[in-house]
Amino acid sequence: MLIDDNDIDLKINGKIVAFTKTFEDIVVCRSGEEALNYLKQHLTTPERLPEFILLDIQMPEMSGFEFLDHYKKLPVSFTEGCNIAMLSSTLDFSDIQRAEANPYVVKLLKKPLIPAVLQEVVKEHLQR
C-alpha cells in the first residue's frame, strides 16, 4: 500500500515498487484518511489487506505520524502482519529518529526512493 498526497510521487514509487516484483497488488491512497478507511473496510477480508505500507510523512491534514496514531488502534491480528516504512524528503535528523522510534515503523526511507534500498528493506522484513 502506498500513502502519499503527491500524485507524481505515487506514480514514481508505484513503478519502483512494481519493479521489485515482490508484490501482487498495490493499493494507492492519496491521504491517511483514505488509507484508514480502506484498511477498516477490509479487516474481514485479510487477503485484500496490505503486508507492506509505504507512508509519506509530509501530508496535509493527516501527516504520516498522525496516521500512525490511528493505525495502532487497528486490530493486532492485522498490524502484526504488516510492516510500515516511512518515506520523506526530509533531511531532518529528528524526523528520522522519531520515525524509527515508532514500533510500527521498520525504516525511514528518503526520497527519492532508490529501488535497491527498497528491495533490501523488503527482503529484511518480509519473510514468507
Binding site: D9, S89, K111
Partner: peptide, 20 residues
C-alpha cells in the same frame, strides 16, 4: 528549502525510473 526539495526529489526519482 523543504518545499523546494520535495518536487526536486520527484524529478530525481523520475530520472531513476528512466534508468530502470
Amino acid at each position: 528549502s523543504h518545499e523546494l526539495r520535495a518536487p526536486l526529489v520527484s524529478v530525481i526519482g523520475i530520472v531513476n525510473l528512466v534508468k530502470m
